[in-house]
Computed example of a mutant assay.
Amino acid sequence: MGVQYELVNIDKKEVISFSGVDTGTKLRELAGTIVASNIITWYLLQNIGDRISFIDDMTESLILFGSLYSRNAFATYQDVTFQTIDQLVEADVLRRVGTKWIDEEEGLSYEVLQNIWDPALPDNK
């Protein structure tokens, strides 16, 4: 299945999980998806100076910023993925374009987002 990542902010006890967003959570997906890059960059710029790192779902003990953390230490962090997306939509960087259903019976879906700011993209000219 592969290693999955999420972004954690130790100082604010927040996480960007990308859960419910059609970006993926693996290394290539996060680095190669424009929307994931938008979310990550926006969050980092809004939280300059905070202790922020990516963590993976395979490592049980992590050393971050000189301290040892159990993976479970981040389970109570507030997921601010959609708050960050709301900010990007308000700033006219992203647009909500629909829902991609994975399993309607289970209610599993992803929000589909589109970058609308980048003038280098053909659809944004």
Score class of each variant (00 low, 15 high):
residue 1 M to C: 00
residue 3 V to W: 01
residue 5 Y to Q: 01
residue 5 Y to T: 01
residue 7 L to R: 00
residue 7 L to M: 05
residue 12 K to R: 06
residue 13 K to D: 03
residue 16 I to V: 08
residue 17 S to D: 12
residue 17 S to E: 05
residue 17 S to F: 09
residue 18 F to W: 07
residue 20 G to I: 01
residue 20 G to A: 02
residue 21 V to H: 10
residue 22 D to S: 13
residue 22 D to R: 11
residue 25 T to N: 09
residue 28 R to K: 10
residue 29 E to S: 08
residue 29 E to M: 00
residue 33 T to L: 04
residue 34 I to V: 09
residue 36 A to L: 05
residue 36 A to V: 01
residue 38 N to K: 15
residue 38 N to C: 13
residue 39 I to M: 05
residue 39 I to P: 06
residue 39 I to E: 11
residue 40 I to V: 13
residue 41 T to S: 10
residue 42 W to N: 06
residue 42 W to H: 15
residue 43 Y to V: 01
residue 44 L to K: 11
residue 46 Q to D: 07
residue 47 N to P: 04
residue 47 N to G: 11
residue 48 I to V: 12
residue 49 G to F: 11
residue 50 D to W: 03
residue 50 D to C: 08
residue 50 D to H: 15
residue 52 I to Q: 04
residue 54 F to P: 05
residue 57 D to E: 12
residue 58 M to D: 12
residue 60 E to R: 10
residue 62 L to H: 14
residue 69 Y to L: 13
residue 70 S to E: 15
residue 70 S to L: 15
residue 73 A to F: 07
residue 73 A to T: 14
residue 75 A to K: 14
residue 76 T to R: 15
residue 77 Y to S: 08
residue 78 Q to H: 08
residue 79 D to R: 07
residue 81 T to H: 09
residue 82 F to N: 05
residue 83 Q to P: 00
residue 84 T to C: 14
residue 85 I to P: 02
residue 85 I to L: 09
residue 86 D to N: 14
residue 87 Q to I: 02
residue 88 L to M: 12
residue 88 L to E: 09
residue 89 V to Y: 13
residue 89 V to S: 07
residue 90 E to A: 12
residue 92 D to I: 00
residue 94 L to A: 07
residue 94 L to D: 04
residue 95 R to V: 01
residue 96 R to D: 15
residue 96 R to M: 12
residue 97 V to C: 12
residue 98 G to R: 14
residue 98 G to C: 14
residue 98 G to W: 10
residue 100 K to L: 11
residue 101 W to N: 14
residue 101 W to P: 12
residue 102 I to T: 14
residue 103 D to K: 07
residue 104 E to M: 10
residue 104 E to D: 08
residue 106 E to A: 08
residue 110 Y to M: 05
residue 110 Y to W: 13
residue 110 Y to K: 08
residue 112 V to W: 06
residue 113 L to R: 03
residue 114 Q to V: 04
residue 117 W to F: 09
residue 118 D to Q: 09
residue 118 D to T: 02
residue 119 P to F: 05
residue 119 P to E: 12
residue 120 A to Q: 12
residue 120 A to H: 11
residue 122 P to Y: 03
residue 124 N to V: 00
residue 125 K to D: 02
